[in-house]
Design a protein around this nucleic acid. Structure first.
Lengths: 178, 178
DNA sequence: CAATTTATGGACCATATGGTCGCAAAATAA
DNA sequence: TTATTTTGCGACCATATGGTCCATAAATTG
């Protein structure tokens, strides 16, 4: 997974994969079919991990707005400092293969949808508790959050200034809360 | 430019380039040196075009907040409907080559910086006219806008629902204005 | 231990890739 | 028109790519 994450699909060669998996060609093809199959597998795992973390943060037993804040904080964390340049496998894949590979496109679309749904639900809870500012529709705010979240991963590829991200996130959340 | 835009750097082959330019191999190499050189040229042109449009929208003679609104509207437009899937050459390049190609990285970084600077300036004008909500720092808001703008291009790769983007942009701007 | 299955490795293959080079046609000069 | 330069073309090349296959080693089973 790591090598695809760092280099993308096309830039990752068979030798790269062999070294990363400590497998020989034959074994790798026996186990995963082909490069594309292995990539799909890596992507699925990345997505599953991401959703697991998101679910933990947006746990309904926690305070909803606090969960959203935690989620944003994690993205800020991930897009700061050394690890920032690695970017995000989903975003990179969406841009690289999104419009050319149907299987990939479907996975990305479902992931974004799942993420947006969870954010909408969390914001819905916040709203029903009267914690959301007037005129803030959960679904709309969730979409805006999606853009900010994924946008951070793009911008941070060349600018991993933590305090700027933190400040940006703060004014965004200030606009949501009551 | 179009072919890199549609497929990215690695997925664009020499034959693709030859067909797109109507040049033969020899001529293409005489004119641009190599594939990488041609790509840099396409990227530079894309960036120049983008900044030109941005400057037009954020023209100091226009109302500053109106300019920002126009800029967002254009991104919404671009990320809606048929053309949405094409994405953005800068974003795709940032994710694909951002951490492996110094020349590319530099261009992307400068572009994002230039864009952010222009947005900051426009918001600064709005603030000095007393049009910005309290607590909204121009530089911070500009960074947030950057994330939203580039994030839209990512999300729209698999979901080009115009009304959702419009609504998201609206609540964002409502949070900024006074 | 022997027989048989399963897993492993790397030699091998066809192709696609980016890049070069020499020839011929067109343009220019004399 | 002839001589000379420039430009454009596509055959050609070395290499790197993804993928196959068979010989061998390991594990499993009787």
């Amino acid at each position: 997974m790591g090598v695809f994450w760092s280099s993308g699909y096309h830039a990752t060669s068979l030798p790269d994969l062999l070294e990363a998996t400590n497998l020989s060609r034959g074994s790798l093809y026996a186990a995963f079919g082909d490069k594309h199959g292995l990539f799909l597998r890596a992507l699925d795992r990345y997505i599953a991990d991401s959703l697991t973390r998101l679910d933990a943060e947006l746990d309904p037993r926690r305070d909803a707005l606090e969960g959203v804040r935690a989620c944003l904080a994690r993205y800020v964390e991930r897009t700061s400092g050394a690890g920032a340049k690695r970017g995000c496998l989903v975003v990179a894949t969406a841009m690289e293969l999104g419009s050319h590979d149907a299987e990939v496109e479907q996975r990305i679309r479902r992931f974004f949808k799942a993420m947006e749904t969870r954010l909408t639900a969390a914001l819905g809870r916040a709203k029903s508790e009267g914690r959301l500012a007037d005129g803030i529709e959960p679904a709309t705010a969730a979409r805006l959050l999606m853009c900010v979240l994924e946008g951070m991963r793009v911008v941070s590829k060349t600018n991993s200034d933590r305090s700027a991200s933190e400040a940006a996130v703060r004014i965004l959340l200030d606009g949501f809360g009551k």
